[in-house]
Amino acid sequence: MTTLQIAVIGVLGLIGIGLYGLLIARNLIKVIVALQVLVKGALLALVAAGLASGKLNLGQSLAVMVIVVDTVVAVIGLALALQVKRRMGTLDIKDLSTLKK
């Protein structure tokens, strides 16, 4: 098994774990953690794709973009979670739902 194939298996594992976490998480911060795991899979996929196509620098420059966007998403998500905690007193997604009331 080559290094590239192992990297692709790692990508699949990260995406699977992130997706599973995103589906079952009820805590807002846990949702952001699952999103981070999902994006890490995308990062490794970009580097692996760059390596496979012989354009590693292009893959790296795209990965830089993904890291910046991911960090911004995490920061804004955490700030929103803090505001939700201050106003509602909980981070549970089911408790935040007001549509059923």
Binding site: T2, L4, Q5, V8, I9, V11, L12, G13, I15, G16, L19, L51, A52, S53, G54, K55, L56, N57, L58, Q60, S61, V64
Partner: peptide, 28 residues
Amino acid sequence: SIILLGFMTISSLIALPPATEATFSEVL
């Protein structure tokens, strides 16, 4: 999702030889 993604990627995964590429700073 994983099985579909893996089926699409691993079967067609062939590492190409590194092409002549610009440096990282030039690309970025």
